[in-house]
Design a protein around this nucleic acid. Sequence first.
DNA 1: CTAAATGTCGAAACCGTTTTCGACATTTTG
DNA 2: CAAAATGTCGAAAACGGTTTCGACATTTAG
Lengths: 335, 335
Amino acid sequence: MVTIYDVAQACGCSSATVSKALNNYPDVSAKTREKILKKAKELGFVPNLQARALSTNKTWNIGVLFEDKSHSGLTHYFFSQVLQGVKEQAEEMGYDITFISKNLGGVEMSYLEHCNRRKIDGVVIACIEFDEPMVQELMDSDIPVVAIDYYSEHISAIMSDNFRGVYELTKYLISLGHKDINYVFGHEVYVTEERIRGFKKALEEEGIPFSDDMLIKSKYSEKQPNIDATKVILGRDKLPSAILYPDDYSAIWGINTLRAHGLRVPEDISVAGFDGVEIGELVSPRLTTIKQNTSRMGKQASLKCIQMIESKSDDFTRITVGVELIPGKSTMAKK
Amino acid sequence: MVTIYDVAQACGCSSATVSKALNNYPDVSAKTREKILKKAKELGFVPNLQARALSTNKTWNIGVLFEDKSHSGLTHYFFSQVLQGVKEQAEEMGYDITFISKNLGGVEMSYLEHCNRRKIDGVVIACIEFDEPMVQELMDSDIPVVAIDYYSEHISAIMSDNFRGVYELTKYLISLGHKDINYVFGHEVYVTEERIRGFKKALEEEGIPFSDDMLIKSKYSEKQPNIDATKVILGRDKLPSAILYPDDYSAIWGINTLRAHGLRVPEDISVAGFDGVEIGELVSPRLTTIKQNTSRMGKQASLKCIQMIESKSDDFTRITVGVELIPGKSTMAKK
DNA sequence: CTAAATGTCGAAACCGTTTTCGACATTTTG
DNA sequence: CAAAATGTCGAAAACGGTTTCGACATTTAG
């Protein structure tokens, strides 16, 4: 391995000067700088990031907390796109991203300790159980943290405009003549609350009375709970004319369940999803859904995280990313 | 930040002894070890990985090359599962994974240089254009490298049993009475060659003559090429009774194209995919496909990479991961 | 022309570990 | 009991950079 000392020797100068030349310090003459850069390239010098980090205390590394708890791989269909955004933006700005786990070098440890050992510059948290004490510990630390789809007073966060999403979706259904709408919703976190708020708001604005049984509790991205929720609806005396599901996958399971029960979608009942993952395009009928701008969410997360790192400001911000209504063929005007 | 020196001072011993105690060296008495460990915990000592890496030359870090060139996100549906396997296995063995890009700290560089700066211990390459000179440079370096779905004489690689996959799929179709089978195949890489070999072998064993026009060239995971390929088939005088597509997505686009042409699947024509991603389950008719064991592929990649790192052996191995036929409803017995 | 300002460089300390090797104390062996 | 072996520890160098501060040379100001 050729070091800064080798370059110094080859140039007949000190390591300090080499370091300065390489880092564009002003106090090195153009001539020596030239010579040093040339020699460095010639010798194939590659700076050692650990050594540099040791003295600068900056690793150009942002950690990502991302667990596929269900091991279903399904959560990936949404979050892997977010992750791609995180990755692209970080790379563009010169940062690497590495996953934070509970094990380093064979030693079990908390997420925070992992970050501290690696001297991670900042962290993006996505797709994880935010209530875990370990996650909270990390968010409470003084490492810059950006969360995706999580609400807290003292943390920067990126979220879709969930309120507006469901609001617009519901308005759209109402505009198609639907009044009897059910909303199968995911587990109770802030994101879900916002969506339900959007649902109620749309109903209210259109003068449709809300009642609790319009809401059916389910889970995000899980098969059985959504099949069960659908069966609950099917067991009722009077069927709604439209159903919203927590996400696109759930909607598809819902559609399959409705069909198995002899109902046609959208002729007998309209169905909409949420997320706007590619699958909605492929399935027939093409799913009506709200598309989240996953790439933008990821990029914003990286951007915000890096801003926090570089400004050393610990001011937190909540950034809302716009969503888009995708009218498909799984919904139609009520007859 | 509390360092090893702080611990040493608090214990009234030298930093060397602290280091030894922490790393289970034999030449430190049980008593002092106890005291050191206790004090270290008390003071909240967290070892600095960069400092350690500087002297041990080991970073507990494996790099991952993973580019979503098409930006479609689609490649992710398969590779994100592989990646999950890579991640899980690496984490279990104490390694972190970080993505390798062409930019570090705002400086453009090759993948190899990136690895060298970070002193990555080893690399897993997946989902990338292997022909790129930069990728070749990395594979030719003396960093341990494991590739996924790539064939080369001097590189360790993980691959599905592609030959057997298409072989069994074809045999299955033949067992359903199909003789007139077309194979829409992806771009020409080793994986594809193997699959075509499996296709031919199955035909041969069943005494069905092979002809070149049974093969239609297309691309993996891309919409238009597969629609086009399907149209080529539709334009022929005599339609086949079954079509194999390069992957599940392509199969679905194929099905949609066939339907748009008035054909029913599977009644008029049988269709099969490849990969076994979840979407095949959701779509109707449920797709007949070959399921690749993505998780296992990823885990094997990490495992092999770490073995190479730790044994310092540069012997390369090719590991083949078994596949599974998933009979669905997109194929049926020929009438 | 002298004093001050500026430009260019290097010695050395520092970042936080690991590891070698020798010193010393203690125990074992003969 | 002396010699040898063993156990326990620390000084110091090494890993590969960055950065401060002072030295010296050169240019500018007065």
